[in-house]
Amino acid sequence: MKQNILALTILCLCISSIPLSSAQEQTLPCTFRMMDGFYECFLNAVSTPNNELWNFAFTGTHIAGQSNAGVTRLNIQGSRSYFIIRQAFTTFVNLRVYSFTAPIAGNVMRFQADAFQNANMLEQIIINGAGLNTIFPNALIGAPNLQVLNLQNNLLTSLPNSLLDLSYRLTTCNLMQNQLTEIHQTFFARTTNITNINLNNNQLTSLPQILLSQTRLIVQFHAQSNQINAIGRRFLDNLNALTTLNLLGNACVSQNFPNINSGNINDVHTALQNCYNNYGGSVEPRSFRMNLRGMMTLWREDGTLVGRL
């Protein structure tokens, strides 16, 4: 009996030490084509196993005069993928767009911790309707040139606060049709070049005071069809480029402001008054003054006295 156990143990150790075999490698057949100004690898109706240890090799016949180095978009449609195919960024070193759309029903995807490792040239990430439910904080660290992040129609309930910390060139962030209940006040703090944010059709209940404090170039902000009942009074401070604020279908306001300018910004603040009043349960203290005797006087934004210290 002891000999049998020993033999079984040795066998298990031997199996565990065997390197990945060809059975754990999957060939992904590309249709190489010119489409929408991109030379792309188009994948349709493929399925990647639910195991991150698999290796993937892209195959197919290039258009005359083209090679892997010329591929600028990976376009995956009607497929099942459980995670980002990281080998794409070492096979197609000049990849600009990673697009995964129209997956088969029931797909559930996640970003690995280093999902976009080696994606130095990547400018657009489009993961649409893929059942994406998990993103690690450093998932985008390998994509410093990212300009468009489109994660529309997924299953995200939360986002790492630091997800966009290195996305200095980001201009568009589309998170509509997820299940987000909150956006941390510093989520967009490093995205100083962003112009368009879409949070439509989530479950947000408030918009933090300084959510957009660093997004001075933002032109459009959409948060339609959420459950927003409170907005920080300083939410719109210094957003001189903002022209569109869409808050239709929310609890404290249901209005779209499509032509914001210096002449009507006060009307926008008036329309948001209930939202301001609900933020933190009261109007937030903002101004501090010192009198000549060294006593500190604390005032609310509306001019009423809070107290003296």
Rank of each mutant, 00 (worst) to 15 (best):
A7V: 12
T9W: 02
I10A: 15
C14F: 06
I18H: 12
I18W: 11
P19Y: 06
S21Q: 14
S21R: 15
F32A: 01
F38T: 04
C41A: 01
F42T: 05
P49N: 01
N51A: 11
A57C: 06
A64G: 10
A64C: 02
A69K: 13
A69T: 03
F83S: 13
I84K: 06
I84M: 06
I85K: 10
F89P: 02
L95N: 01
T101P: 00
I104R: 15
I104F: 13
V108K: 15
A113H: 10
A115S: 11
A115E: 11
A115T: 04
A115F: 03
A119Y: 07
L132E: 04
I135K: 12
N138R: 15
L140V: 08
I141N: 14
L146P: 09
N154V: 03
N161F: 05
S167E: 04
T172Q: 14
C173E: 00
M176T: 07
M176S: 15
N178K: 11
N178I: 00
H184T: 09
F188Y: 11
T192P: 00
I197G: 07
I197F: 10
N201C: 05
N201D: 10
Q209H: 08
L212H: 03
R216L: 10
I218L: 11
F221A: 03
A223V: 06
A223C: 08
N226G: 02
R233Y: 07
R234I: 00
D237C: 07
D237Y: 14
T243E: 14
N246R: 03
G249M: 05
G249R: 01
A251M: 08
S254V: 05
Q255A: 07
N256S: 13
F257H: 02
F257A: 02
I265F: 13
N266Y: 08
Q273C: 06
Q273M: 12
N274A: 10
N277H: 07
Y279I: 01
R289L: 13
R293Q: 11
M296I: 12
L298M: 14
